[in-house]
Structure formats: C-alpha cells, structure tokens
Amino acid sequence: MDIYREIILDNYNHPHNFGRILKPTVSSGQNNPSCGDDISMDIIVKNNLITDIKFHGLGCAISIASASLLTENVLGKNIDQINMMNKDDILKLLGITLTPTRLKCALLPLEVLHKTISLIQ
C-alpha cells in the first residue's frame, strides 16, 4: 500500500496545530535518535480536558502527519481518554500500515503527548 496518501502529504505540507502556545499548562518534547525526528508539544488543560494543543519540531512526513492528526483528534478530549490511546488509534488516524522502523515515526507524537500529560501536577 502506498503510505504517501493524500491525507499524509496534506498533513505534512499543511500541519494542523503547528506552532507554540504562549502560556501552556505543560509542555515537553522528545526525539527519535535513529532518524532525528524531534517533536515538542504545548498543551492547555482545563478541568481535565485539553482545550488547546500545539506542536512544533522537525520530522518526516509520517511523524508530522501523525502529530497533525493526533493533535486535532485529542482537542477537547479528557486526559483519561488520551492515556488510553495506543498504536492502533494512531494507525486508524493515519489509515495506513507501517513497517517497524516507520512505526516509530508514527508513534513519536503519541509518546510526546503521553509524556506531556504525565507532567500535569
């Protein structure tokens, strides 16, 4: 299957929620040393809900598209729901199957998100 579908390329060329939030509740980032992908997120949480989320960094089409689709998907969701999200949810969002190496790219944004919300006091 061609992984460079329109949804991936669109989200790479014009990512949603790309940028910074001035006064986030929490932020954090992480990189994937094997390919140099580096994604950070800022989020605002109110009453256990994500009311704003933005990401920034460098990455391949898969990791950027994944971050774009993920941030869009979790906006308005509560933290417990997000903590339940896993690999299958990401693959569903992307609509593609991936080899193990590229799976790491796709999952990096979710890892960053989980890490970020774990920092909420």
């Binding site: 061609d2 992984i3 460079y4 040393p33 094997s34 390919c35 140099g36 992908d37 990455g59 391949c60 089409a61 898969i62 590229r102 790219c105």
Partner: peptide, 22 residues
C-alpha cells in the same frame, strides 16, 4: 523539504535500497 526517511521509503517502492538517518 523532504525528510531522508521519506526519500528512502519512496525509493524502496521502486526497489531501490538507500540508507537514511544519522
């Protein structure tokens, strides 16, 4: 504007093996 991983992956669809990364 194109990440090396994406270059390598698309080349792979043409059966061309190159390395990407650090």
């Amino acid at each position: 504007g194109i990440h090396p991983h994406d270059i390598a992956q698309i080349l792979d669809s043409e059966n061309i093996c190159i390395r990407s990364g650090n």
